[in-house]
Design a protein around this nucleic acid. Structure first.
Ligand code: FES
Ligand code: FES
Lengths: 143, 143
DNA sequence: CAAATAACGGACAATTTTGTCTTAATTACA
DNA sequence: TGTAATTAAGACAAAATTGTCCGTTATTTG
Protein backbone atom coordinates (compact mmCIF):
# COMPACT_ATOMS: atom_id res chain seq x y z
CA UNK A 1 0.00 0.00 0.00
CA UNK A 2 1.44 3.32 -1.07
CA UNK A 3 -0.49 5.53 1.32
CA UNK A 4 -2.11 4.72 4.64
CA UNK A 5 -5.85 5.17 4.92
CA UNK A 6 -5.20 8.13 7.17
CA UNK A 7 -3.25 9.79 4.38
CA UNK A 8 -5.84 9.06 1.72
CA UNK A 9 -8.47 10.61 3.97
CA UNK A 10 -6.27 13.62 4.57
CA UNK A 11 -5.76 14.19 0.86
CA UNK A 12 -9.45 13.88 0.12
CA UNK A 13 -10.28 16.32 2.88
CA UNK A 14 -7.71 18.92 1.89
CA UNK A 15 -8.71 18.81 -1.76
CA UNK A 16 -12.26 19.37 -0.62
CA UNK A 17 -11.15 22.34 1.47
CA UNK A 18 -9.23 23.67 -1.50
CA UNK A 19 -12.41 23.60 -3.52
CA UNK A 20 -14.33 25.89 -1.18
CA UNK A 21 -15.25 29.24 -2.66
CA UNK A 22 -14.93 31.37 0.44
CA UNK A 23 -12.73 30.93 3.48
CA UNK A 24 -15.46 29.99 5.91
CA UNK A 25 -14.97 26.93 8.08
CA UNK A 26 -16.31 23.57 7.01
CA UNK A 27 -17.28 21.12 9.71
CA UNK A 28 -15.33 17.86 9.83
CA UNK A 29 -18.64 16.04 10.06
CA UNK A 30 -19.64 17.43 6.69
CA UNK A 31 -16.39 16.25 5.09
CA UNK A 32 -16.68 12.84 6.72
CA UNK A 33 -20.18 12.41 5.35
CA UNK A 34 -19.22 13.68 1.91
CA UNK A 35 -16.57 10.98 1.49
CA UNK A 36 -17.84 8.33 3.91
CA UNK A 37 -14.82 8.63 6.18
CA UNK A 38 -15.10 7.58 9.85
CA UNK A 39 -15.71 10.90 11.56
CA UNK A 40 -13.52 10.56 14.63
CA UNK A 41 -10.72 9.11 12.60
CA UNK A 42 -10.82 12.01 10.19
CA UNK A 43 -10.81 14.32 13.19
CA UNK A 44 -7.43 12.96 14.24
CA UNK A 45 -5.99 13.15 10.74
CA UNK A 46 -7.06 16.77 10.44
CA UNK A 47 -5.56 17.51 13.84
CA UNK A 48 -2.21 16.42 12.44
CA UNK A 49 -2.64 18.78 9.51
CA UNK A 50 -3.76 21.53 11.85
CA UNK A 51 -0.68 21.12 14.02
CA UNK A 52 1.41 21.36 10.86
CA UNK A 53 -0.30 24.58 9.82
CA UNK A 54 -1.74 23.14 6.64
CA UNK A 55 -5.20 23.37 8.13
CA UNK A 56 -6.76 25.89 10.50
CA UNK A 57 -9.58 25.06 12.85
CA UNK A 58 -11.94 26.70 15.29
CA UNK A 59 -14.20 25.07 17.81
CA UNK A 60 -17.79 25.87 18.52
CA UNK A 61 -20.81 26.70 16.47
CA UNK A 62 -19.94 27.73 12.93
CA UNK A 63 -16.57 26.24 13.60
CA UNK A 64 -14.74 23.69 11.53
CA UNK A 65 -11.64 23.54 9.39
CA UNK A 66 -10.22 25.41 6.43
CA UNK A 67 -6.86 25.58 4.76
CA UNK A 68 -4.20 27.33 6.79
CA UNK A 69 -2.23 28.56 3.79
CA UNK A 70 -2.81 29.53 0.23
CA UNK A 71 -3.69 26.34 -1.68
CA UNK A 72 -0.99 27.39 -4.11
CA UNK A 73 1.78 26.77 -1.62
CA UNK A 74 0.48 23.51 -0.13
CA UNK A 75 1.84 20.57 -2.08
CA UNK A 76 0.84 16.94 -2.18
CA UNK A 77 4.29 16.27 -0.76
CA UNK A 78 3.50 18.39 2.31
CA UNK A 79 0.31 16.51 3.07
CA UNK A 80 1.84 13.07 2.63
CA UNK A 81 4.90 14.05 4.68
CA UNK A 82 2.78 15.25 7.60
CA UNK A 83 0.54 12.19 7.76
CA UNK A 84 2.68 9.29 6.57
CA UNK A 85 6.11 10.83 7.04
CA UNK A 86 8.80 11.39 4.46
CA UNK A 87 9.92 7.78 4.52
CA UNK A 88 8.37 6.86 1.21
CA UNK A 89 10.42 9.62 -0.43
CA UNK A 90 13.76 8.63 1.08
CA UNK A 91 13.76 5.06 2.35
CA UNK A 92 15.39 2.00 0.84
CA UNK A 93 12.88 -0.19 -0.95
CA UNK A 94 14.09 -3.20 1.01
CA UNK A 95 14.03 -1.31 4.30
CA UNK A 96 17.80 -1.24 4.71
CA UNK A 97 19.19 1.66 6.71
CA UNK A 98 20.75 4.57 4.82
CA UNK A 99 19.65 4.32 1.23
CA UNK A 100 22.16 6.07 -0.94
CA UNK A 101 24.69 5.69 -3.66
CA UNK A 102 27.44 4.81 -1.19
CA UNK A 103 25.84 1.57 -0.09
CA UNK A 104 23.07 0.72 -2.53
CA UNK A 105 21.01 -2.43 -2.35
CA UNK A 106 20.14 -4.46 -5.46
CA UNK A 107 16.81 -2.65 -5.78
CA UNK A 108 18.33 0.81 -5.66
CA UNK A 109 18.82 1.26 -9.39
CA UNK A 110 15.25 0.21 -9.88
CA UNK A 111 13.65 2.15 -7.08
CA UNK A 112 15.61 5.39 -6.83
CA UNK A 113 14.43 6.86 -10.16
CA UNK A 114 10.81 6.02 -9.46
CA UNK A 115 11.01 7.44 -5.98
CA UNK A 116 12.64 10.58 -7.31
CA UNK A 117 9.92 11.03 -9.89
CA UNK A 118 7.35 10.47 -7.17
CA UNK A 119 8.90 13.06 -4.92
CA UNK A 120 9.41 15.63 -7.67
CA UNK A 121 5.88 15.26 -8.93
CA UNK A 122 4.48 15.43 -5.41
CA UNK A 123 6.44 18.60 -4.72
CA UNK A 124 5.33 20.10 -8.02
CA UNK A 125 1.60 19.56 -7.59
CA UNK A 126 -0.29 21.94 -5.34
CA UNK A 127 -3.60 21.68 -3.64
CA UNK A 128 -4.79 24.41 -5.97
CA UNK A 129 -3.90 22.26 -8.97
CA UNK A 130 -5.78 19.33 -7.53
CA UNK A 131 -8.79 21.35 -6.45
CA UNK A 132 -9.19 23.38 -9.62
CA UNK A 133 -8.81 20.25 -11.73
CA UNK A 134 -11.49 18.61 -9.66
CA UNK A 135 -13.84 21.49 -10.30
CA UNK A 136 -13.09 22.11 -13.95
CA UNK A 137 -13.11 18.45 -14.94
CA UNK A 138 -15.80 17.47 -12.48
CA UNK A 139 -13.68 14.70 -10.99
CA UNK A 140 -14.64 12.44 -8.11
CA UNK A 141 -12.77 12.69 -4.83
CA UNK A 142 -14.73 10.02 -3.07
CA UNK A 143 -17.24 7.24 -3.63
CA UNK B 1 4.98 2.03 3.05
CA UNK B 2 5.48 0.78 -0.46
CA UNK B 3 6.11 -2.87 0.36
CA UNK B 4 5.05 -4.90 3.37
CA UNK B 5 7.79 -6.40 5.50
CA UNK B 6 6.76 -9.78 4.21
CA UNK B 7 7.46 -8.64 0.67
CA UNK B 8 10.81 -7.09 1.53
CA UNK B 9 11.84 -10.36 3.14
CA UNK B 10 10.65 -12.28 0.11
CA UNK B 11 12.69 -10.14 -2.24
CA UNK B 12 15.81 -10.43 -0.11
CA UNK B 13 15.42 -14.20 0.05
CA UNK B 14 14.82 -14.70 -3.66
CA UNK B 15 17.75 -12.50 -4.63
CA UNK B 16 19.87 -14.62 -2.31
CA UNK B 17 18.58 -17.77 -3.96
CA UNK B 18 19.32 -16.26 -7.34
CA UNK B 19 22.92 -15.76 -6.26
CA UNK B 20 23.55 -19.44 -5.51
CA UNK B 21 26.05 -21.09 -7.80
CA UNK B 22 24.53 -24.54 -7.99
CA UNK B 23 20.91 -25.60 -7.68
CA UNK B 24 21.19 -27.24 -4.28
CA UNK B 25 18.67 -26.38 -1.61
CA UNK B 26 19.36 -23.66 0.92
CA UNK B 27 17.74 -23.92 4.33
CA UNK B 28 15.34 -21.17 5.31
CA UNK B 29 17.13 -20.92 8.60
CA UNK B 30 20.33 -20.00 6.79
CA UNK B 31 18.57 -17.24 4.84
CA UNK B 32 16.84 -15.95 7.97
CA UNK B 33 20.16 -15.72 9.77
CA UNK B 34 21.90 -14.13 6.79
CA UNK B 35 19.46 -11.22 6.73
CA UNK B 36 18.19 -11.23 10.32
CA UNK B 37 14.67 -12.10 9.32
CA UNK B 38 12.33 -13.81 11.83
CA UNK B 39 12.67 -17.45 10.82
CA UNK B 40 9.08 -18.61 11.10
CA UNK B 41 7.82 -15.51 9.41
CA UNK B 42 10.16 -16.04 6.49
CA UNK B 43 8.96 -19.61 6.35
CA UNK B 44 5.43 -18.43 5.63
CA UNK B 45 6.55 -15.90 3.06
CA UNK B 46 8.52 -18.55 1.21
CA UNK B 47 5.54 -20.87 1.35
CA UNK B 48 3.61 -18.28 -0.63
CA UNK B 49 6.36 -18.18 -3.22
CA UNK B 50 6.53 -21.96 -3.25
CA UNK B 51 2.81 -22.23 -3.89
CA UNK B 52 3.25 -19.79 -6.76
CA UNK B 53 6.06 -21.87 -8.28
CA UNK B 54 8.65 -19.15 -7.91
CA UNK B 55 10.38 -21.22 -5.27
CA UNK B 56 10.79 -24.98 -4.89
CA UNK B 57 11.21 -26.71 -1.56
CA UNK B 58 11.96 -30.11 -0.09
CA UNK B 59 11.61 -31.23 3.47
CA UNK B 60 14.07 -33.17 5.51
CA UNK B 61 17.81 -33.24 5.86
CA UNK B 62 19.60 -31.49 3.03
CA UNK B 63 16.25 -29.91 2.27
CA UNK B 64 15.48 -26.26 1.90
CA UNK B 65 14.43 -23.93 -0.86
CA UNK B 66 15.72 -22.92 -4.26
CA UNK B 67 14.28 -21.04 -7.21
CA UNK B 68 11.54 -22.89 -9.04
CA UNK B 69 12.25 -21.28 -12.38
CA UNK B 70 15.12 -19.81 -14.29
CA UNK B 71 16.05 -16.55 -12.55
CA UNK B 72 15.81 -14.98 -16.00
CA UNK B 73 12.07 -15.40 -16.16
CA UNK B 74 11.25 -14.42 -12.58
CA UNK B 75 10.60 -10.69 -12.37
CA UNK B 76 10.39 -8.33 -9.45
CA UNK B 77 6.79 -7.83 -10.48
CA UNK B 78 6.08 -11.54 -9.99
CA UNK B 79 7.47 -11.56 -6.47
CA UNK B 80 5.65 -8.43 -5.37
CA UNK B 81 2.41 -9.62 -6.95
CA UNK B 82 2.53 -12.95 -5.12
CA UNK B 83 3.25 -11.50 -1.70
CA UNK B 84 1.59 -8.09 -1.66
CA UNK B 85 -0.82 -8.53 -4.54
CA UNK B 86 -1.11 -6.51 -7.72
CA UNK B 87 -2.98 -3.68 -6.04
CA UNK B 88 -0.05 -1.30 -5.98
CA UNK B 89 0.19 -1.64 -9.77
CA UNK B 90 -3.47 -1.00 -10.49
CA UNK B 91 -5.23 0.70 -7.62
CA UNK B 92 -6.35 4.29 -7.28
CA UNK B 93 -3.99 6.34 -5.15
CA UNK B 94 -6.92 7.53 -3.04
CA UNK B 95 -8.37 4.04 -2.75
CA UNK B 96 -11.40 4.75 -4.90
CA UNK B 97 -12.88 1.77 -6.73
CA UNK B 98 -12.10 1.38 -10.42
CA UNK B 99 -9.14 3.56 -11.21
CA UNK B 100 -9.22 4.43 -14.86
CA UNK B 101 -9.51 7.15 -17.39
CA UNK B 102 -13.30 6.93 -17.39
CA UNK B 103 -13.67 8.06 -13.80
CA UNK B 104 -10.36 9.50 -12.66
CA UNK B 105 -9.79 11.07 -9.28
CA UNK B 106 -7.79 14.29 -8.84
CA UNK B 107 -4.62 12.29 -8.14
CA UNK B 108 -4.89 10.17 -11.25
CA UNK B 109 -2.86 12.41 -13.54
CA UNK B 110 -0.18 12.50 -10.88
CA UNK B 111 -0.17 8.87 -9.92
CA UNK B 112 -0.91 6.93 -13.10
CA UNK B 113 2.41 7.72 -14.85
CA UNK B 114 4.44 6.87 -11.76
CA UNK B 115 2.55 3.66 -11.22
CA UNK B 116 3.02 2.73 -14.86
CA UNK B 117 6.74 3.36 -14.66
CA UNK B 118 6.83 1.29 -11.50
CA UNK B 119 5.02 -1.60 -13.11
CA UNK B 120 7.01 -1.50 -16.34
CA UNK B 121 10.31 -1.38 -14.51
CA UNK B 122 9.25 -4.16 -12.16
CA UNK B 123 8.24 -6.34 -15.10
CA UNK B 124 11.49 -5.55 -16.88
CA UNK B 125 13.86 -6.45 -14.07
CA UNK B 126 14.55 -10.11 -13.45
CA UNK B 127 15.91 -11.93 -10.48
CA UNK B 128 18.96 -12.68 -12.59
CA UNK B 129 19.54 -8.97 -13.09
CA UNK B 130 19.25 -8.34 -9.38
CA UNK B 131 21.38 -11.29 -8.35
CA UNK B 132 24.18 -10.78 -10.86
CA UNK B 133 24.31 -7.07 -10.02
CA UNK B 134 24.59 -7.99 -6.38
CA UNK B 135 27.53 -10.25 -7.09
CA UNK B 136 29.37 -8.11 -9.60
CA UNK B 137 28.96 -4.87 -7.66
CA UNK B 138 29.17 -6.52 -4.26
CA UNK B 139 25.92 -4.95 -3.09
CA UNK B 140 24.26 -5.47 0.27
CA UNK B 141 20.94 -7.28 0.45
CA UNK B 142 20.60 -7.05 4.18
CA UNK B 143 22.03 -5.34 7.21
C1' DC C 1 15.32 -48.70 11.35
C1' DA C 2 16.56 -44.71 14.19
C1' DA C 3 17.96 -40.15 14.59
C1' DA C 4 18.67 -35.76 12.92
C1' DT C 5 17.18 -32.25 9.78
C1' DA C 6 14.09 -29.10 7.74
C1' DA C 7 9.70 -27.55 5.49
C1' DC C 8 4.64 -27.39 6.59
C1' DG C 9 0.70 -25.94 9.17
C1' DG C 10 -1.93 -24.29 12.82
C1' DA C 11 -2.46 -21.75 16.99
C1' DC C 12 -1.40 -17.85 19.37
C1' DA C 13 0.85 -13.30 20.91
C1' DA C 14 2.58 -8.58 20.01
C1' DT C 15 2.35 -4.54 17.47
C1' DT C 16 0.46 -1.23 14.42
C1' DT C 17 -3.31 0.70 12.08
C1' DT C 18 -7.96 1.74 11.90
C1' DG C 19 -12.22 2.76 13.95
C1' DT C 20 -15.48 3.97 18.04
C1' DC C 21 -16.96 6.29 22.09
C1' DT C 22 -17.00 9.62 25.82
C1' DT C 23 -15.82 13.82 27.96
C1' DA C 24 -13.83 18.44 27.94
C1' DA C 25 -13.08 22.94 25.94
C1' DT C 26 -14.46 26.64 23.01
C1' DT C 27 -17.51 29.49 20.19
C1' DA C 28 -21.86 31.47 18.19
C1' DC C 29 -26.18 32.92 18.94
C1' DA C 30 -30.75 33.39 20.78
C1' DT D 1 -26.58 33.77 30.22
C1' DG D 2 -27.47 29.44 28.64
C1' DT D 3 -27.77 26.10 24.94
C1' DA D 4 -26.35 24.00 20.79
C1' DA D 5 -22.55 23.18 17.82
C1' DT D 6 -18.10 21.74 16.99
C1' DT D 7 -13.00 20.64 17.58
C1' DA D 8 -9.61 18.49 20.99
C1' DA D 9 -8.14 14.75 23.56
C1' DG D 10 -7.91 10.41 25.59
C1' DA D 11 -9.48 5.73 26.39
C1' DC D 12 -10.75 1.81 24.30
C1' DA D 13 -12.02 -1.82 20.59
C1' DA D 14 -11.40 -4.14 16.15
C1' DA D 15 -8.65 -5.53 12.43
C1' DA D 16 -4.48 -6.27 10.04
C1' DT D 17 0.31 -7.16 10.12
C1' DT D 18 4.16 -9.06 12.15
C1' DG D 19 6.37 -12.29 15.04
C1' DT D 20 6.65 -16.71 18.11
C1' DC D 21 5.86 -21.42 19.28
C1' DC D 22 4.77 -26.20 18.75
C1' DG D 23 3.56 -30.49 16.62
C1' DT D 24 3.51 -33.00 12.03
C1' DT D 25 5.47 -34.69 7.86
C1' DA D 26 9.04 -35.85 4.87
C1' DT D 27 13.95 -36.76 3.74
C1' DT D 28 18.75 -37.93 4.43
C1' DT D 29 22.20 -40.43 6.75
C1' DG D 30 24.33 -43.67 9.81
S1 FES E 1 19.66 1.24 -0.83
FE1 FES E 1 17.87 0.08 -1.22
S2 FES E 1 16.74 1.41 -2.53
FE2 FES E 1 18.52 2.60 -2.11
S1 FES F 1 -8.69 7.08 -10.16
FE1 FES F 1 -7.45 7.67 -8.48
S2 FES F 1 -5.45 7.27 -9.25
FE2 FES F 1 -6.70 6.64 -10.92
Amino acid sequence: MLLTSACKYGIQATIYLGMQKDDSFVSIKKIAEEFTIPFHFLTKVLQLLTQAGIVESTKGAKGGVRLGKDPDVITLFDIIAVIDGEGIFHDCMLGLPGCGLNTPCPAHEFWAPIRTKYEKSARAISLKDLASDTISKNLRIGK
